[in-house]
Write a protein that binds this DNA or RNA. Structure first.
Lengths: 337, 337
DNA sequence: CTGAAAGCGCTAACAA
DNA sequence: TTGTTAGCGCTTTCAG
């Protein structure tokens, strides 16, 4: 039904190759013939069939974005960054949501990709070695966003430094008893929270502060669980004067707990979060901002660059710096020492 | 590099057509030849090239999902519903995010679709008449999710009824002075909030309650603005004893305001929200639940059905019912009448 | 039941 | 500079 390149050629009285050249902005077309062709294209309301072009060139002009759980705000933000970049390119974004481990495995196995996408962006999906190998072996370039593997291109935030920065901020305010509250670190699902913990404990040790295991608390995911655990933590003997939370959700749960047991913030307790989600500003939470949207954009751009110059060994590892956003939930402890 | 259908044919000592038949589960293949072919496919690790198939059949096995502002949780939920359905189909999901009105217009104009997608899902993007016409004229089937147009297939929530239900709930508790707080209704961007308002005022009138314009408050988007406006509303002469908020974000802002000026909930003030977002449960908010994920799933299924049986006039308008979730922010007013 | 052949709409090499 | 031709890898007649 829609006009084809042949219709245009006939109408413009030129060869089909010429039309193709015009479409592809080839310089070797005389200007008047170009005009003829353009006119015919206009008249016929012709748009080149992308599929045919794909078959012909071998490129799909499609990049696959794989991410887990479309629910988490942070993944979505990264996806936005990706989409922003891709929108300005010729590439379409095809979305693969992984909602359970078996989907995930299947995805890595099939790389359903096979000639379906020109490149893959994996968001927050750290591959194991076997999966990484499969990725490197496949001819489709891939980049990991918010995940790391030595053999792959990655862009990820400097979580260790985030942990350091948050902890240092608290110490500089005069805190000595600083707790860390996170999801369970023993599961393989939260590498970033483990890294933040690493930064935290590194600073604690360097500053020769008391490193009390009771100040390290783990809770199930979610604000409510954080609240419950925080309440416990704050009512023990010799409670901390500050808590570094592995996420803003955790931090907000802590705020709720403090509120519940009548502690004032930041007088009785300082709290630092992580992520700088939308609500953080609203509750005036001091937190670590990692540049989520930017991470997606950077990853997408990296992939686009790889696609553009396949041979050129690209700068393939981008560590994104994080920064402290000081708001109202941190201050000096009430009673020193 | 990857094996083609021809390689398989050669290896299996059959014609290329036969291989195609095997791939497509055609019944007219003798079982032993089928086995031969299958073996060859296995041996060569052959996967049919989807692009070639697309060109050949004219189908793209791709459906385009267009939605505005990837940020809003409710859109994301709907997208999840779509993705859930599409994941189990043969269709890929290609994502188009509209971040500004010009992108939107451009999208409707180009329908970039032209032979790129087999169908379109528009989420929360009410088209005007011209755009709708373009959609109906284009040969690609489309369905609107969370939007309505008489000429198009739509699935959308019963917002008017949501307004009714919330208001009735409050009246049944004994409230007479019921306010409605929403975004600005005069802009074309919040048709649903307008409909909820319609349901609200309908019930107010039917119950012959005082319909005081001062009880209708509009705020800029966001929790903070809701909080500010709510504070104003609650400190006027003769304040309302209950507020119906057009969204949970608004409602939570109202809760904050009440807290700030020392009103107790639901003793001094009842609040009903809308959407039942995640935080609603956390703050124990009574609210209206619209089935977001389901709306996406339904829309996607509808489109798939249209694709499967193009001629059959499908049930093309699905109004999703909403329901009241009673939690802790509503109760009888303290002083009657 | 099966093989051969003709496209799908485009790009790219090759002549002219 | 331009037209012609040969594919890209598959589906689908059409014979046989």
């Amino acid at each position: 039904m829609p006009a084809t390149i042949r219709d245009v050629a006939r109408k413009a009285n030129v060869g089909i190759g010429t039309v193709s050249r015009v479409i592809n902005d080839s310089p070797s077309v005389r200007d008047d013939t170009r005009q003829k062709v353009l006119a015919a294209i206009e008249a016929l309301d012709f748009t080149p069939n992308p599929i045919a072009r794909r078959l012909s060139t071998g490129q799909t002009f499609t990049i696959g974005v794989v991410l887990p759980y479309l629910t988490l705000p942070s993944y979505i933000e990264r996806l936005r960054g990706v989409q922003n970049i891709l929108a300005d390119s010729n590439y379409d974004l095809v979305l693969f949501d992984i909602e359970n481990p078996s989907q995930r495995d299947e995805y890595f196995k099939n790389l359903s990709l096979k000639s379906k996408v020109d490149g893959v962006l994996l968001i927050s999906l750290p591959p194991n070695d076997e999966q990484a190998k499969r990725l490197t072996n496949s001819s489709t370039p891939a980049v990991l966003i918010d995940a790391y593997h030595p053999d792959l291109c990655c862009v990820y935030p400097d979580d260790v430094d985030g942990g350091r920065i948050a902890t240092r901020h608290l110490i500089e305010l005069g805190h000595q008893k600083i707790a860390y509250l996170s999801d369970y670190l023993s599961t393989p699902f939260h590498p970033s929270m483990r890294l933040r913990y690493q930064g935290y404990s590194e600073v604690i040790k360097k500053e020769k502060l008391e490193f009390d295991p009771k100040y390290h608390v783990e809770a199930d995911r979610g604000r409510l669980n954080a609240r419950i655990m925080a309440k416990k933590l704050l009512t023990i003997d010799d409670p901390p004067t500050a808590i570094f939370a592995a996420s803003d959700s955790h931090a907000i749960g802590i705020l709720d707990a403090a509120n519940e047991i009548g502690m004032s913030i930041p007088g009785d307790l300082s709290v630092v979060g992580y992520d700088d989600i939308r609500d953080a500003a609203y509750v005036n939470l001091t937190t670590i901002n990692q540049h989520l949207v930017q991470s997606g954009a950077l990853g997408a751009q990296m992939l686009l660059d790889m696609l553009a110059e396949p041979d050129k060994k690209n700068q393939c590892n981008q560590i994104l710096s994080v920064n402290l956003v000081i708001r109202g939930t941190t201050g000096p402890p009430q009673q020193r020492n």
